[in-house]
Design a protein around this nucleic acid. Structure first.
Lengths: 260, 260
DNA sequence: GAGTGGTCTAGACCACACT
DNA sequence: GTGTGGTCTAGACCACTCC
C-alpha cells in the first residue's frame, strides 16, 4: 500500500497491479477494502465487535479518511459491516439478529399473523458426500460431510422441511445435541461455534410435487405442490460452505422477493 | 434549496425540513436526489438520454460536484440512472436492453442452453378491474383496466403463462395489434409508447397445481406443480402500475435469486 | 465534552471516450 | 485535446451516543 503524498504533484498510486505490471487498475479504496476483508476473515475483528474508527484505519493504512470511508461503505452495503452513527462500525453477525433468519424469505400471506417460528431437528449425522454435494461444496466425492434435516413450524404448523449439507472438515463436532441446545439461528451457531460466517447465497426455486416422506413431515397430501428452494451459501472468498434444499409449503405462506 | 457558502464558517443548510420546523433532517444530497428524480418523472430527461454532467448539475443546484455525485450514486444503484465513464450519465431504459427482460429471473437448468426466448400473445382486452386488482393498482373496483395474457417459450417450449393487468387510464390505445408489432420487452413498449417506466417490483412466489386451462397452454398435465409468481410493479413515486401473475413450468428452468 | 460516523466543500489528478 | 465520470485528499461542520 502506497498512499498519495499530500502535495499537489502526486506520484502515481503504484497499486499492487501496476507494480506487478498487470494491465488492471485497482483503486486505492478497493485495496483497503481487501485489507479490511482479510482482517475480517482472519478473525482480527470478530462478529459483533466494533472495528477501529475510520480515522484509526486511515492512519493504519496511510490513506485519507475518505478513502477508508468508501471502502467501508461498500462492505456495509454487502452486509459484511454495520455502521452505527455515533458508536462505530461493527462486524455483522447472524448471532444477534432480532429479525432472525435473515436469509429466509418466507412470509405469511396474512401480514397480521405474528411471525412465530419454531424449529424441530429431525436428524444430524455424518455422511459421505455424494458426487453432486461434493461438486457444489468443492470437495471430493465420498469426503466427510454433515447432513442436517429439520422442520420449521409457523404457529405450530410445519411449513419448511430443510435438508442441509456441510463440509465435514469445517464442522467437526457438530452433533444433534449441539444443535438442540443452541438458541437462535443456525448461522449464528455456525459462526460462534465453528467460525464459519455465511455472507452470501444463491437460490434456485422450482415447483415440485411432494414425495411421500416430505408429505408426511409437512402434513400435506403426497403430490402436493411444494416450493423447492436450493440454496448454496458462501463464506469469505466466495468459498461454498453449505448446500441446503428446502421444501416450502406455500398454502398460507409465500416467498417474497424484491426486484429493481 | 440553499447550498452552503464556500466559506469556513457555514450557515446551516436550512433544508426543507428545518425551515418547516419539522424534526426530520434531510441531507442536501437527498434533496438533490429528489430534484433529479422529479426531472426524470416529468420527462425533462427521457429514457436512454444523457442527463447534464455532474458539473452542470452542481451549478444548476448551487451545490458542490461531490454532493451531486452522491445523489447520482444512489440513483444509479437504484437502477434509475446508468453511469458511463468518459461519456456521461444516462437515464435507464427497458427499451434497449441487450439482456432483455431484466425482471425475469427464470433461467435454464442447463447453462449451456442458449437463452432463446419467444413470445406469443394470447389476448389483450379492456376489462373492469376486480376488487383485488383495483386494490393492488390503487383504483376503484370496476374501473377500466387492460388485461394481457401471453405465453413465453424457450426454444419453442412453452414455459411461462402470464396474466397481466394495467390501469386503463395509463394505457389508452393499447391493443393486441400494438403488442404484436412491437419488438423487445413489454416494459420497453410501456416506456416508449405510454410513458410509463417500471422501476421496481415486488414478487410473491408459491407452488400451485396447474388448472386445466393453464395446463393446456404450458403443455403439462393438469395438476402439475407450477411456480406462481405474483408481481406488483411500481413507477416513480412508488405508484403501482402493473399486476402480473406468471405461472412458470420449472421442469427445465428455475427461478434464480441472490441473497446477501 | 469527547468520540464516532455522516455531510459538504474545494481542488487535484486519473481513466476513458470521442473528435 | 476536451469533456466526462472516477479517485483521492484535506478540512470543516453536523448528528448521534455515551460518559
Amino acid at each position: 500500500m502506497r498512499p498519495m503524498p499530500p502535495t499537489a504533484t502526486m506520484s502515481p498510486p503504484e497499486n499492487a497491479e501496476s507494480r506487478a505490471g498487470g494491465p488492471a487498475f485497482s483503486p486505492l479504496y478497493q485495496q483497503i477494502k481487501a485489507l479490511i476483508t482479510r482482517s475480517l476473515q482472519s478473525g482480527e475483528w470478530r462478529p459483533g465487535e466494533a472495528i477501529p474508527s475510520e480515522m484509526e484505519l486511515a492512519v493504519r493504512y496511510k490513506v485519507s479518511q475518505g478513502t477508508v470511508r468508501k471502502a467501508i461503505d461498500e462492505l456495509a452495503t454487502e452486509n459484511l459491516l454495520v455502521r452505527r452513527q455515533g458508536k462505530g462500525t461493527y462486524v455483522a453477525t447472524h448471532a444477534e439478529e432480532q429479525i432472525q433468519y435473515r436469509f429466509l424469505r418466507l412470509q405469511p400471506n396474512d401480514p397480521a399473523v405474528t411471525h412465530q417460528l419454531q424449529r424441530r431437528f429431525v436428524d444430524c449425522r455424518r455422511q459421505r458426500a455424494s458426487a453432486e454435494i461434493a461438486r457444489l461444496l468443492d470437495m471430493k466425492t465420498g469426503e466427510a460431510a454433515v447432513q442436517i434435516r429439520r422442520l420449521l413450524l409457523f404457529q405450530g404448523t410445519p411449513v419448511v422441511f430443510d435438508d442441509i449439507w456441510l463440509p465435514g472438515r469445517d464442522f467437526k463436532g457438530l452433533t444433534a445435541e449441539r444443535l438442540a441446545g443452541y438458541r437462535g439461528p443456525l448461522y449464528g451457531l455456525f459462526e460462534t461455534e465453528f467460525g464459519v460466517r455465511m455472507i452470501r447465497a444463491e437460490e434456485k426455486l422450482r415447483a415440485v410435487g411432494a414425495d411421500a416422506a416430505t408429505a408426511q413431515w409437512l402434513s400435506v397430501p403426497p403430490g402436493s405442490p411444494l416450493l423447492s428452494v436450493e440454496r448454496l451459501s458462501f463464506t469469505y472468498g466466495d468459498k461454498p460452505v453449505e448446500v441446503r434444499r428446502g421444501l416450502y409449503s406455500t398454502a398460507s405462506h409465500h416467498y417474497r422477493n424484491e426486484l429493481s
